[in-house]
């Protein structure tokens, strides 16, 4: 994942608004992994996640002419597009379950660690994925924004259309819920 400065992103956005395809390509390079990570946690398959990710950036390209950087950081803006794209995907496929198949969990058995350890990590990942799926949509979004997208409270608030205080409370509840769910899974196991 590349990390561009806000100023660099602003320049790329300005060029993209002017119709510069290469600049938009660089924005894709910067945000594709974050968008995919968010989308992948919500749709049923890798193929769907890739389709939705492509749709997110195509929608962003279509709408970028109307983007106003005075109101919303670009990252927050594209997160909103991703969120809406996931909702549209739900509607299209009429799937209510966004459970990612276990086989799609991150593959840790790449030879870099002992098999026992990779199996152990895989179990932990699956438990977390399952627990995340039981959170509310907003709770999952705030955890994704804060931990995966690297947003601060302010940007997260803008992306979710909430106040910073509300996001802080939402994050607290999300963390508590995740802890409880993981504890329950461990107890069941």
């Amino acid at each position: 994942m590349t990390v561009l400065t806000e100023r660099h992103i602003d320049r790329l956005v300005a060029k993209s608004i002017a119709g510069d395809a290469r600049a938009f390509g660089k924005l894709y390079d910067e945000f594709a992994e974050r968008v995919y990570a968010f989308v992948r946690g919500r749709v049923g398959s890798t193929e769907d996640a890739e389709d939705v990710t492509a749709v997110v950036f195509l929608k962003a390209w279509e709408a970028i002419g109307g983007y106003d950087d005075r109101g919303l950081p670009f990252g927050a803006w594209i997160f909103r597009i991703a969120r809406n794209a996931v909702i549209d995907s739900y509607r299209r496929t009429s799937r209510n379950s966004d459970c990612a198949p276990v086989g799609d969990a991150p593959d840790m058995a790449d030879g870099s660690m002992p098999v026992d350890e990779s199996v152990f990590i895989r179990v932990r990942v699956e438990e977390t994925i399952t627990a995340m799926e039981l959170l509310t949509e907003e709770q999952r979004s705030v955890l994704m924004l804060r931990f995966v997208w690297g947003f601060d409270l302010k940007d997260s608030a803008q992306a979710l259309g909430k106040s910073e205080g509300a996001v802080k409370a939402l994050q607290h509840r999300a963390v508590r819920s995740l802890a409880r769910l993981l504890a329950e899974e461990n107890d069941d196991g």
Partner: peptide, 29 residues
């Protein structure tokens, strides 16, 4: 701990798949 758990559960986009999606997007763009 929550951060670690969430990050650990994230399905990463491989470089190949990232390029493949990029090609789809950029052909239209």
């Amino acid at each position: 701990a929550a951060r670690d758990a969430v990050l650990g559960s994230v399905v990463r986009l491989s470089a190949d798949r990232k390029r493949a999606i990029r090609s789809r997007v950029m052909s239209t763009v």
